[in-house]
């Protein structure tokens, strides 16, 4: 998986530019996503990583306009290329428009962190699955049922005909996440957004779910956007990685570059803070200094400067770095790598 194509100008499925999603609270405005740019190539797995509160989930929610009040997409475009010249800017659609609803669940499927609460306990698995199928595919009830059972089978649920009539509370967490995946993929989406899909599951189930997602990608050929704070999962699953810090993308590159040649001090610190086989730091881990700043008090200049070990005193506190392109698919936002050509 880790060696799929990443040519420049590869067929881009989703192009996010200048995305800003703010939360207007009584205490002030939280700029959860503050100018995010990245692209998702067709058919690949892209990982979005960062600490809690870095805006990775809000980015994912913004893509389907699922951010709820008091959150709001302020600026930016989210262009979905559904093939050929068919481009839609999702950010510009009305939040309850027919167009947006046709993208939700059909072109882009989504699964969430909490399989225990992501399904309604009031309806059967079958009802919730066929609801999505019948919304997006022109099929009769029976066909929808067949399709749902087929999908349940595809995600490895034993005895899918019986599970179809089961209520979610009768299933285990891992099974529910499988149902969620089956539901998200039931209309053949081009992109599957997975928001920390394994965080709430136990370790063995985590591995099974990840493996299932890889296997389904081979089968269905959709792109996957995997939001996680687990670098191990990223190394295993993704071909490209987007590293976020305080609502900004600080580095984007293919997975090998991120792990072997990270350029942003934050990415480097992140990697040093996790144990890795063969990379012993005399048996010690280096935690990142400090903690994520309070969302109402963003540091000036480069948001990472208070915690950075390679700070250029006098500049990093005041200058907000622009994105520098180190090579066609490796960008970094750091004054150490300032692009001399602007």
């Amino acid at each position: 998986m880790s060696n799929s194509n990443h040519n420049a100008g590869a067929d881009i499925l989703l192009d996010i530019r200048g995305l800003k999603t703010y939360f207007h609270l009584d205490e002030g405005t939280v700029r959860a996503v503050d100018g995010v740019d990245f692209t998702v190539p067709r058919g690949t797995t892209i990982g979005i990583v960062g600490e809690s509160g870095c805006g990775k989930s809000v980015t994912a929610f913004s893509i389907l306009q699922l951010v709820e009040k008091p959150g709001r997409i302020e600026e930016g475009s989210i262009v979905l290329n559904t093939g050929g010249q068919n481009r839609v800017d999702i950010a510009a659609l009305d939040h309850d428009s027919e167009e947006l609803r046709q993208i939700r669940g059909k072109d882009i499927g989504m699964i969430f962190q909490e399989p225990m609460t992501s399904l309604s306990m009031m309806y059967t698995v079958g009802f919730q699955m066929t609801e999505a199928i019948r919304l997006h595919m022109d099929v009769e009830k029976d066909e929808a049922r067949d399709r749902a059972i087929e999908m349940l089978q595809a995600v490895g649920i034993p005895r899918p005909e019986q599970r179809f009539d089961a209520y979610p509370f009768e299933l285990s967490g891992g099974m529910r996440q499988r149902v969620m995946i089956a539901m998200a993929l039931s209309c053949d989406p081009m992109l599957l957004i997975a928001d920390e899909p394994t965080t709430a599951l136990d370790v063995t189930t985590q591995a099974q779910i990840l493996e299932l997602m890889q296997q389904l990608q081979e089968e269905f050929g959709m792109a996957i956007m995997l939001i996680t704070h687990d670098l191990g999962v990223v190394a295993e699953m993704c071909s490209e990685v987007v590293v976020m810090y305080l609502g900004e993308v600080v580095e984007q590159a293919d997975v090998d570059t991120i792990f072997h040649n990270p350029q942003h001090p934050y990415t480097q610190a992140l990697l040093e803070s996790i144990p890795r086989l063969g990379h012993s730091h005399e048996g010690r881990l280096n935690p990142i200094l400090g903690s994520v700043p309070d969302p109402y008090h963003r540091p000036s200049g480069c948001p990472f400067h208070p915690r950075c070990t390679q700070i250029i005193t006098g500049r990093c506190e005041t200058v907000h770095p622009e994105i520098s392109r180190l090579d066609p698919r490796h960008t970094v936002r750091c004054l150490l790598h300032e692009d001399p050509h602007g």
Binding site: G105, T117, S118, S120, M121, Q128, L135, M180, A184
Partner: peptide, 27 residues
């Protein structure tokens, strides 16, 4: 209203009006 299952339904493309009655109101 803000429970994950409501967001799931919204992410499936269920129209808002149907969604509110069918999911959170039902619970």
């Amino acid at each position: 209203l803000h429970k994950p299952y409501v967001i799931t339904a919204r992410a499936k493309g269920v129209p808002e009006r149907t969604l509110i009655w069918r999911y959170p109101v039902r619970v």
